[in-house]
Amino acid sequence: MSHLILHHYPSSPFSEKVRLVLGRKQLAWKSVIVPSIAPKPDVVALTGGYRRTPFLQIGADIYCDTALICDVLEHEQPEPVLYPPHLKGVARVFAQWADTTLFAAAMAYNLQPRGAAVLFAHLPPAVLQAFGDDRRAMRAGMPAPQPQDAAAAYRSYLRRIAHMVEEHDFLFGTEPCLADFSAYHPLWFTRQCVPVMADIFGATPAVLEWMDRMAAIGHGRMEKFSAADAITVAAGADPLPLPGDVFQDEHGIPLGARVAIAAESFGTEPTEGELIAATRTRYTLRRQDARAGTVHVHFPRIGYTLRKVEST
């Protein structure tokens, strides 16, 4: 029985990134489909507030953000590698660019009226309104790129990616690495979820050939699972032991303090809990939930803020 539980939904681009990583590593995993908009009571029971999609569950441990999830899966199944030793730094830097700058341009292009009309064609007006309200709340006042500017940037980025895959099967050589999975998922959304917008690939056939190679990786061995069963798994498990070196203090906040962790941008709902680890690369909170029991919720340091919750 697989102990990896991915909480995701089919059209989520970042979920596709992780699904392909699971396929690359030929891992078995359980699939819990989560709502695309709030409320998400089963999600919050496990994460405590974080509601970006996806997140990974291993027993009573909850891993937020695909950057951290990829690290966890690399530890879980080291081969084939996501971070080849000679590319470890550049793969991470490129992946961060792809998950932020490339993703923002692609999605602003994808969700222009022509694309949105296809994506939301079968939704009743009330659901469409709720989706728009939800995403505006998640942006928390962040300005969205203008579609015209995004289209121009997206075309430039596709040409740059084409220059890389004209010489190799994948971005940095003969095998895919973290950079490929991060660059692929926003392009996948264009091609698969709003195909009416896929004419943008016309000038870069090498990108389409690379995307075909990525899609052929597949999603590994998936088994359907319910949210209720995932919560039961958490309630019946003990969190995994923490590593020995669990504290690198950058904030003057001691272990054991009540803290809140939130994304720096998009989906900034905080998760509160007891700070039990602040390593060089991640934070860990211990929290209690009436349904899930004691869980450890893990976040990467990069892209997240930590603050102390003052007692009232």
Rank of each mutant, 00 (worst) to 15 (best):
M1V: 08
H3N: 11
I5H: 10
H7M: 04
P10W: 07
S11W: 11
S11D: 07
V18R: 05
V21C: 12
V21R: 13
L22W: 00
Q26V: 13
Q26G: 05
I33W: 14
S36F: 12
I37V: 15
A38W: 00
P39F: 08
K40D: 10
P41T: 02
A45L: 06
G49L: 02
R51V: 06
R52S: 04
F55Q: 09
F55W: 13
Q57G: 11
Q57M: 03
G59T: 08
D65V: 04
V72K: 08
V72I: 14
E76M: 02
E76P: 05
P78Y: 00
P80M: 00
L82T: 05
P84L: 14
H86K: 12
G89T: 15
R92T: 14
T100S: 10
F103L: 10
A106D: 04
L119W: 09
F120R: 10
A121L: 06
P124M: 07
V127Y: 12
Q129P: 00
A130E: 03
D134P: 14
G141L: 05
Q146C: 03
D149G: 10
A152G: 08
Y154M: 12
Y157L: 09
I161H: 08
V165Y: 03
E166H: 04
G173I: 11
T174R: 14
A179H: 10
H185S: 08
W188V: 11
W188L: 08
C193H: 12
M197Q: 14
A198W: 06
D199I: 02
A203L: 11
M211T: 07
A215W: 02
I217T: 04
G218A: 03
K224F: 10
F225H: 07
D229F: 03
I231W: 11
A235H: 08
L240E: 05
L240W: 03
L240T: 10
L240V: 02
H251W: 01
G252E: 06
P254M: 13
A263M: 01
A263S: 09
G267M: 03
T268F: 06
E269I: 07
I276M: 01
A278G: 01
A278Y: 02
A278W: 00
T279K: 00
R287P: 01
H298W: 11
F299P: 03
R301Y: 01
R307I: 00
K308T: 09
